[in-house]
Design a protein around this nucleic acid. Sequence first.
DNA 1: GGTCCGTTGGGCGC
DNA 2: GCGCCCAACGGACC
Length: 579
Amino acid sequence: MLWKFLFVVHTVKSISFNMMSTTKNVVGMHWFRKGLRLHDNPALIACLEQEPKKFYPVYVLDGNSYQLLRCTPLRANFLIECLQDLDQNLRNLGSRLYVLNGDPVDVLPKMWKEWDISHLSFEEDESGEPYALQRDETIVQKAQDAMINVTGFCSETMYPLKSYVAGKGKGAGKYPGTMSAFQRVFGNMKPMQRLKSAPEKDHFLDNQDSKEMSELFLPPRKPTDLPWPRGIPKSEIEDVWNAEDCKGLNPIVHGGETLALLLLEKSLSDAKWVANFEKPKTSCTTLTPSTTGLSPYLSWGCLSSRQVWFAVEEALARTSLNCTKPPVSLHGQLLWREYNYLTAFDANNHQPGSWNKIQGNKYCRDIPWDTDQEMLESWKDGMTGYPWIDACMRQLKAEGWIHHLGRHAVACFLTRGDLWQSWEKGASHFESHLLDADYALNGFNWMWLSCSGFFYQYFRCYSPVAFQKKNDPNGNYIRKYVPELKELPKKYIYEPWDAPLDVQRKAGVVMGKSYPLPIVEHKTISKENMSRMADAYAAHKRKESPGYVEGNDIPSVKPKKKQKNTLISQQIGIKRYLK
DNA sequence: GGTCCGTTGGGCGC
DNA sequence: GCGCCCAACGGACC
């Protein structure tokens, strides 16, 4: 309750207690959670400005946090690299990072006592993710009981989310409900605050990283050093990590603020590219990202969104070209992020914890999805029999990243397009595998793609074949990620089931044996699903209409067509190939 | 209640 | 590469 009250303050600095009557003998602790950076970190600076005689930068490995729950070795590795980089950068300033292990609610108070902490600072978690909210509420309460001065700052987003209230018009006093409304509100905001510089050596009065402490609480070296309460036996993780051919041994995307800042500079170095950037026109079949590739750094907070905003602004100032505009421009991408955080925050204010669920989510329509574990597993494993979909899903597994449009294709395929499985299942899989997994963005995009919220034109459906054929006719992307198909002629690379048996044999692959037959027939099932979607929308309309009584719903006006047997494998009498 | 618009559809004809 | 139709969504705005 206390926490909610604190959100009322409409400034960047949203929590500040002054329990201490004196600031003598200040001992500071900055608690890193997300926000794994030194630049643009106002909470860190605020704590250092108290001139602490000792200062403890701390990260807590918390297996129940959104970041570590269901975390794959690849994500775990990224986190470790972020922590090691943070530690190194702090050591360069005469300090270091202390990495604690356990539930912050227990571990932090213990260390406050041991280290005699008087001041605690942290970056606030703004999207209202329930675990983080509960954790922080408890920590603030405990700190208050221990007479510790607590400072929290909103630096996860460009402005504190509470400040995005429309000032005039129909939506006055409310949060904007569409992206265009959000853009209008954003356009009327006060100029964005300039960035806080990273701390310097002078900030650390006492280089208290004494020798006897230096070996304590070191950042972990490999994923198996992390807490692992994920229902997966630790031995399995070790097997994966130790396997010779595991991509996890050699991740292509590395973590850390230092690298993030370098990549930011590099990706924005071509002002012409920045000025012409249009997200929908970037390609999802290039073998290296056609976008900035900065999303993992933003989601872990190695980069601040304001840092990126100003860097884009500077890049644009270097050219006289006409530049693209939000929502498709690079600034537009940051606005999407901001808007997604705002809707997540609003949904959770309305019903705590509802954002990544269907139930109770004010932005989500309840569509009666099927539950078919076999279909879900085929999708997760990249074994649907649609090469383009499988290539995307396998890139996700191997690299923890897929281009935005690839994500659209696989999300549409899993939900309204083909398999009719709940977006919650897909979102959960993305959360554990994406290096840039982000509570707010993930929920928003899954609702969008499944036509459960924000986007409703369900008759616009991605084809798992046609969508990419025009961009990558030779199927190079498929050949890379679905190697069993790599020898197939161009003609059959998107639709290998059409290849005559002798062509298949010559390419060293046989459909139904070494590569699955299509799990569903897209042409038929996508049409059927559109009519199921129309039914679901009609039911939604009835529910929303005045006088609706729960459980008294009348059946659909349009009788649902009897579902045809659309499994090609069943039609032609061959058992579906799995694993 | 009518009209326009919405970051990223597919398929066709030109 | 563009414009048009396909069938036809909800939300904002007038």
